[in-house]
Design a protein around this nucleic acid. Structure first.
Lengths: 219, 219, 219, 219
DNA sequence: AATGAATGAGTTTTCATTCAT
DNA sequence: TATGAATGAAAACTCATTCAT
């Protein structure tokens, strides 16, 4: 190893450095553990101790990264929202028909959820569902509304209530995603097909289902 | 602080023999307080103390009626199962068309929310929105699936995925209700009309909106 | 025992009651323990645990009575100030000469300190002295100034700086009391004689001392 | 937050060989910060972190210079013992009369306080006044007793109680200084004149005051 | 030597539950 | 049966000190 460059004035700003690395890694360790534990116990029942215990770190270390349970939670939500928002927005911008607009929204969302299920499931199915809308998540919803309004302006949509439509899409996305995750194997394509059909043609246009609770494409 | 005069089982001097009455009344006091507080803080964050504080009763009294927080929660669930669910169930049983089935579900729900908004949604002081699916609603929507399955059996619905349809209805109900409450005056009829139209004919069948964010029936 | 009176509408406000008694007692237990521990370890080094440990009570019980260490401390100070202030004021009002005014102030204070030394000594001699002036204590000082001003108005004192004189008296009272408590036996009379002589005639009028650090009256 | 650029041992690139300089400098940085923080929060409430935070140094660096909070405290004591005490001591040694002995003590002290008020007294945000006898002053007044004893041996003072006299001087010095700082402008000369007159001739010898609370020399 | 994150023991605080009145 | 203070186990949080870089 050539250490020439390490002599002289220390390369203070250079190279991320091992310290920096560990810091990022530890933050991630906590976030991952929190995701895990939230999914298992639910947000309410989770304690900071639970999170730390799921980690090789010491209790005090938690507080070097987050002030409280709530703060980790929001960090997780934000992380997710930041990951999916740009993708959703971009695809919707490319849509030239109502069908495309709707279907790309659902498909992207369900695929994301299927892959990243731990992120989505900070929820204990048999108990209470808590949804904490952080600014980042709200921003995602707002963006959807703006996109709808833009689509109306382009005559892609009829002149409808964009606010309610946004709400309807969000509601269906979250609830159907939830159900989707209870089925094995997860089938985001089928879920998106269902939701899209509903939004395009209503219940009568919904795909036939061999038996309730089983994705038609899987059956 | 001496709160002696403020507390006490309400009418201590009540008509003799009506002890049974007081017992029922106290039970109700606790249930009502619990509903309130669960809605405000969420199930996880709520403590038994919080519930008792929202009551004229003493902390020990709680345990004369319920063994734990979990038990009150169950009791609320049970209670409402006996109140709203039969109503919804009955109406849906009478439905002879898909339209009726869908519209009565949404109308009843939105009207319930508009009247009982406190139970539905609260803003925490730090402005973070926390939503808890109150037990009554969970129970109601579990039954929804059963009713859909029954409707499919009666050939009212095509043979679709009842689980997903239930999820879609729940999602739309919740999210649109949320938006409805941000508008003045609350218009459950218009909200139900929107949701029903969406489910019957898809986005293209949605009622025209003079301006986004304003109920057409109100405008 | 005649229980006739116990029937019918409960005598809610009557008799202090055993519960009420215990409450007062426990508060006092904590205050006494705190006094003890503050005197031993000093205010800074004392923890709430230390106080509780010096008590037969459980840790949580502390918080039924005080919010924090600081709050107990202030309660102690206030208790003391409330006990001694009226006595000091009353005696000063009766003074007809400067000598009386000064000497009664010091005598009362030093006697109080000698008797109630634990109250006075929330201080660790070898470490840091912390004096937290609670409103109640400040009020005691203010009263002294007012009394001095009244004495000036009555021509008992020459027209001097009442504010500084008050400060001087307070300073001498506290510091000499501190020294007095290091000597055995405590001799408040001698301490008051010293302070009074100083304030009346200056250092040259001070009583002779057989040996420094020994009260002349004792020697 | 990346504070890399803000921290660091001051001039890392400093003139080679002047490492010794930096070491002395850092030690001083810590001592100064400690003095500040002790005065603000009191010894007990101060944490090592507080001291370090008031410094451009990193937490670990603290332990290169001092083993603990206690040790900094001792160091401050020692440091000032070398600075103020000799000055006071020397002046008192030169005194040929009681007046000189007393007046030089007060004058020096009040001037020190007026200049260095931050070290003497701080107001905490919650308005509770906390006073900590900073080590320098404690050390100074311990020596005062020795000096009084020496003066008695020289027949400068009558054979009085040196311990009590020291206490009286300390008490007056502190309390009057406190009052002095509440007046604008600070007038250490007048404060010293007041205290000296009191100690030489008693209350009847005190300078007349135009109005209480106003320094005569200023008025 | 300087750095500053990690550590974990110790402290503060909360809260479900008990129990004497 | 109602009361509400006491309990103490467990959670939240702090901070002196260590140690890899």
């Amino acid at each position: 190893m050539d250490t020439t460059l390490l002599k002289g004035p220390l390369p203070r700003v250079a190279v991320p450095g091992k310290r920096e690395q560990t810091k990022i890694q530890n933050r991630q360790l906590i976030l991952d553990a929190a995701r895990q534990v939230f999914a298992e116990l639910g947000y309410g029942a989770t304690t900071v101790r639970d999170i730390i215990r799921a980690t090789p770190l010491a209790s005090g270390t938690f507080y070097n990264y987050f002030k409280s349970k709530e703060e980790v939670f929001q960090a997780i939500r934000d992380e997710v929202a930041l990951a999916i928002r740009p993708r959703l927005h971009e695809e919707r911008m490319k849509a030239t028909t109502v069908e495309e607009f709707i279907s790309c929204t659902f498909r992207t969302f369900f695929e994301f959820v299927a892959v990243d299920r731990v992120n989505f499931r900070t929820i204990r199915p048999d108990a209470t569902r808590v949804r904490m809308d952080t600014p980042e998540v709200i921003a995602g919803f707002e963006e959807l509304r703006t996109d709808i309004e833009a689509a109306i302006a382009k005559d892609l949509f009829p002149k409808i209530d964009a606010d309610y439509l946004m709400a309807a899409i969000v509601g269906v996305a979250f609830e159907v995603a939830e159900r989707m995750l209870t089925r094995e194997p997860h089938n985001p394509i089928a879920a998106a097909a269902f939701a899209t059909a509903l939004f395009i043609g209503g219940v009568r246009a919904l795909p036939y289902s061999a038996e309730p609770g089983v994705d038609t494409e899987t059956a």
